[in-house]
Design a protein around this nucleic acid. Structure first.
Lengths: 223, 223
DNA sequence: TGAAAACTGTCATGCACCTGTCAGATTGGC
DNA sequence: GCCAATCTGACAGGTGCATGACAGTTTTCA
């Protein structure tokens, strides 16, 4: 999943980014309101974590402008203030959830998961396709009940496929989902990881099909 | 376990902190109501030991505000007064237990243990995984019935793992559980202690697995 | 009280695995 | 058959983890 973190305090920002990247997400980090808006215009995100107190432009204003311009990405507001009207106005402006600072990282993770899940459509944190199960919480994969050792990137790629079975992903699309701005990679990397996934999942009742010239697609395989 | 002690009398505060640290807990100590509230907002605790008489803000008020903002951490109230209505109001405000000063430290320890145990979900004070047994009261560990010499920190870490077998703990998460504010350590410390635990428990039917990039996990080992 | 022993956490080193690029092999379409 | 797209093995660099040595601190014990 691709996430934008907007937070001006370096310490906090770095901590959040590290935490979310560790979960296998592609995370971009902006420190001001205008920079955040620029990033949102350029890139589609699955989630935006937005601090309220920002230099340049208030987080709430950024949120309002986003919604006004039709951006429907889920937004998690971070607010240092805990007054009721703040929470209410956050939700009124179109936020999907809020968290008052300072917060526990485990709670942040839980809310992030909840929002990503909600937008992903499914309500469980276990994805399933054929006999392959991906647990989004423990970031583990099993085939026919047996645990399957995958690396972080492999899991991230598999997650993209499993969130939308049948959907055909182009390579640029997959690159967007897997890499953040600074860590850009060639399209070859995708081919490589598809290959690795295929090898590790060769016994599964699921396969990643190549649609020449179009991209890749995950489908359930008949027994 | 991570504990916050709120007590303005230096002698008493130091004594409580020393006593609880000796049991292997990570203890933070605040001396005023506002400071305590700030700490609670920043950090998640497994238990709060709260004096009623405090400069700045009354302990009971701190407790009430905590509960109002959804903090569910168990709270043990220390009160110098022993009048019935005080006890009653403490429980009404959402305290889980109280102790009238002056008190015997052994009783404090017992009540702390009870509260921690209750929040941990288990009603027994003996944790078990594979052939490893951890006695939370005597803070001792044995493997297949044989006592095993572990240091405080080693036991504290093992306790975290054994309270939630299978769960994958990230290193920041483990640091949160093991270290207080002032005694912050690098993630290296976790790796180090995992290594030490592994060496001392190598013969046990339990192991701490490394999930590269994710964290550590305690599992029962097959014979 | 003072010295020895044990405990803690940092540093630095080394190793293993993960990552992404390259280049050559293979496949599919025309 | 030819070209482009894809696959795959090899490889270099990086990252994360394991581990030994060490210094500061605490605890123990005489």
């Amino acid at each position: 999943m691709r996430i934008l973190v907007v937070e001006d305090t370096v310490d906090v920002g770095e901590a959040i980014v590290a935490r979310l990247e560790r979960l296998g997400h592609a995370v971009d980090w902006q420190q001001t309101g205008p920079d955040a808006e620029a990033a949102i215009k350029v890139q589609r995100y699955d989630l935006i974590v937005l601090d309220v107190m920002l230099p340049g432009k208030d987080g709430m204003a950024v949120l309002a402008d986003c919604r006004a311009t039709g951006v429907k990405t889920p937004v998690l507001i971070l607010t240092a203030r805990s007054r009721i009207d703040d929470r209410v106005s956050a939700l009124d402006y179109g936020a999907d959830d809020y968290l008052t600072k300072p917060f526990d990282f485990r709670e942040l993770e839980a809310r992030v998961r909840a929002l990503l899940r909600r937008s992903g459509g499914s309500s469980v944190s276990q994805l399933q396709l054929g006999d392959v199960t991906l647990d989004q919480v423990s970031r583990s994969v099993s085939v026919a009940g047996r645990p399957c050792e995958l690396t972080r990137r492999e899991i991230a790629l598999l997650e993209v496929f499993m969130l939308r079975p049948q959907k055909v992903f182009t390579k640029p699309e997959l690159l967007d989902q897997l890499f953040s701005f600074d860590k850009d990679a060639g399209e070859n990397a995708i081919e490589l990881y598809v290959g690795r996934l295929r090898r590790k999942l060769h016994a599964a009742r699921m396969e990643i099909r190549t649609l020449r010239g179009l991209g890749y697609q995950a489908v359930e395989r008949e027994a």
